[in-house]
Design a protein around this nucleic acid. Structure first.
Length: 211
DNA sequence: TGCCAGGCCGGGT
DNA sequence: ACCCGGCATGGC
């Protein structure tokens, strides 16, 4: 599946952000939100000079909320950005890359202890900002795999993630590309009510014996 | 014009 | 251990 997508779309060069800090902020802002809306909020943060955890740690939450408003659920997300900023500042004085430098799965556990950071957000930060080989499972990943009969409908996050991590070489570069490709094919052909014709994976061969 | 988006949390069974 | 409502804007 990876080879098929890679041939169809080429290298993705993800995450669509310039710095690790921007990656992590985007990861929080995109929770249950389309990327288009996130881009507006990130642009507003950039304009305000707030793509910086020490600044985020210092700014008032209510003001931050107004700035990230285009991303939706903006009061919630302002709190989550503040929680992450406090963690990064406490841990490394404000440098995210340093804060992510520990070993897995210790760093993952620490990220998950932050209020508002769940498994997907943590893994996106670990992989795309910290270069840790952890597989990101999002709504697209789930949909694509389910529609091609590769996981049960009831499969939860850990189950899907372990499937990737068991059956692929534990390589951050590979995980990076594969997840980005899954999002790309998902956006084009596997949104909630779209159907999958013309998808490069459709019909996916040997679906039954691929299990 | 609704429906939905690259989740997560808290409270109720 | 599940299930569900709340959060909320902008795009299609």
């Amino acid at each position: 599946m990876y080879d098929t997508l890679r041939k169809a779309y080429g290298p993705q060069g993800w995450w669509p952000a310039e710095t690790p800090t921007e990656v992590a902020i985007g990861a929080i802002l995109t929770q249950n939100t389309s990327w288009k809306n996130v881009e507006k909020a990130v642009a507003a943060l950039k304009k305000a000079g707030l793509l910086d955890f020490r600044r985020l740690n210092a700014i008032a939450e209510a003001g931050l909320a107004e700035i990230v408003r285009p991303a939706g659920t903006y009061r919630v997300k302002a709190g989550r950005l503040k929680a992450l900023a406090a963690w990064v500042c406490h841990r490394s004085g404000g440098c995210l890359e340093d804060a992510l430098k520990g070993h897995m799965p210790d760093v993952r556990r620490d990220l998950l202890s932050i209020h508002g950071i769940g498994p997907e957000t943590a893994d996106a930060i670990l992989l795309y900002a910290g270069n840790h080989a952890t597989f990101v499972v999002d709504a697209y990943t789930r949909r694509v795999l389910r529609r091609h009969g590769l996981v049960a409908d009831t499969a939860d996050y850990a189950e899907i993630q372990s499937r990737f991590e068991r059956e692929l070489p534990r390589d951050a570069g590979l995980f990076n590309e594969f997840h980005a490709l899954l999002v790309e094919v998902g956006k084009r052909h596997c949104r909630a009510r779209a159907h999958c014709d013309k998808c490069p994976l459709s019909p996916w061969p040997h679906e039954a014996d691929a299990r």
